[in-house]
Nucleic acid binder design. Structure first.
Lengths: 241, 241
DNA sequence: CATTTATTGTCTCAATATGTTACAATAATA
DNA sequence: TATTATTGTAACATATTGAGACAATAAATG
């Protein structure tokens, strides 16, 4: 008994989204990558937009499903619209490997324009869940990505670039950390995103000078040295644009 | 004899683009706005994407048609994807006023996701041409815009914001000026975009310090004062990202 | 033709911001 | 109690930007 594919009645054709979901494990910046069943194809989490659904909501829906998290920092950064964004043979393989019934032609084999978002989440709060088509969803460091489908590699690169550009403008780094963190952890997030080392004293001065951090109790890690303070961000909740 | 609407065979449904075309008249930043025949509706220049066409190319095609210019500085800045982006009654009115034949329902009355771009052109080089649905296309200063259809006003605001953010990163201001210009003209472009006055000496020092300008002969305007130098940009042509 | 006017190009000094080094203040450990 | 590996902050040097001053014009004025 073959499964039924989502119907074109429900979704807008030619329209998709992809999410680059960033997390920080304390050392490296990582992203979530899906592996499709039995095919060896890797891809970014993505999906289609319902006909009665805002694009942003479609993306949030899928982020909830993949991560279980409710309020996620999300930023749309580019829409990829080249005609080359179609790989019907690959798509057919994936669908067949998932035991879907495919007619001669199906809308999911068509050309897609993809609206791309990046999300920032707290690595440790999450138990990622694969989607219907996938065996697994795993964290990959940016310099250890598997070969990704289609133009997903370029999508990741562009996401990182946008994240870097927004790092100063918005208080973006926050969203990759737990609510309380040390100055060192914050610095490590910045270094991972920018891909360069920062000077400790300058960084600390700048962050404190911005007047956006609240200082809390000290964190006694058990190390043979002065204990660092914990900080949190002043304004509550998600720092969405 | 009614005219025929573009066929859905040619275009992707639910998918559109809009362009915010900026020009600078020497004093103000302006944008091009269309007025639809006999309806009093104003809108941004936009269009649909052919099934076999890159989105970027669709936008360039329409820019050529509206402006006659070939190489235009163009930047995609956001995709607007809310379900509220549909006004079937208004759209029907516009089409009827243009003497198009409309069946019960038509794909152009549907919800659209719009991929938005901004363009920078040389105000004086252009003789704007209205599209099929429009009586006129005219320059409007940003603070004297007519009431625009749908969410086009928000699109303009977001375009301006992106332009402001890109002003420092890229050498964007260039594209609004003729190939040779004075330092004062360049400063006026920056001021119009940023919406604030800049300090003359600091601006000049910064621009010259960037090492991107070539100094040419002086410009004798006939004013009772020292003649300014003309400058052009070092690297040739369009400074696309 | 000398004088006046408005603007331009450049310099200087002041005010900020950032880079760099130094050092005292810890928590654990030996 | 001394040692170790940080952390928080201060101090100084350097770089960047803000602000004002001023000489060098093109034309207009008389």
């Amino acid at each position: 008994m073959k499964r039924q594919l989502p119907s074109i009645e429900e979704f807008m054709p030619h329209m998709a989204y992809d999410s680059v979901i960033f997390g920080f494990n304390g050392k490296q910046l990582k992203i979530l990558v899906l592996e499709y069943h039995n095919t060896g194809y890797f891809a970014l989490p993505g999906g289609f937009v319902r006909r009665d659904e805002n694009v942003d909501d479609a993306v949030k829906r899928s982020l909830r499903e993949r991560t279980g998290l409710e309020d996620i920092y999300l930023e749309q950064f580019h829409t990829f619209g080249n005609t080359s964004r179609a790989e019907p043979d690959v798509m057919r393989q994936i669908l067949e490997a998932n035991d879907y019934e495919i007619e001669e032609w199906h809308w999911m084999l068509d050309r897609f324009v993809s609206i791309a978002y990046y999300a920032l989440i707290n690595y440790n709060e999450v138990e990622p869940q694969p989607d219907e088509l996938s065996d697994s969803i795993n964290w990959y460091a940016l310099d250890e990505l598997p070969l990704l489908m289609m133009d997903h590699r370029q999508i990741v690169e562009r996401a990182l670039q946008s994240l870097q550009e927004n790092l100063e403008k918005k208080l973006v780094g926050i969203n990759l950390l737990p609510s309380k963190f040390t100055m060192k952890e914050l610095q490590e997030v910045y270094e991972a995103i920018l891909g360069e080392d920062l000077r400790r004293t300058t960084f600390q001065r700048k962050m404190l000078g911005m007047d956006i951090l609240v200082r809390h109790e000290k964190l006694f890690t058990g190390g043979a040295h002065k204990a660092p303070y914990l900080y949190s961000f002043k304004h509550n909740g998600i720092s969405k644009a």
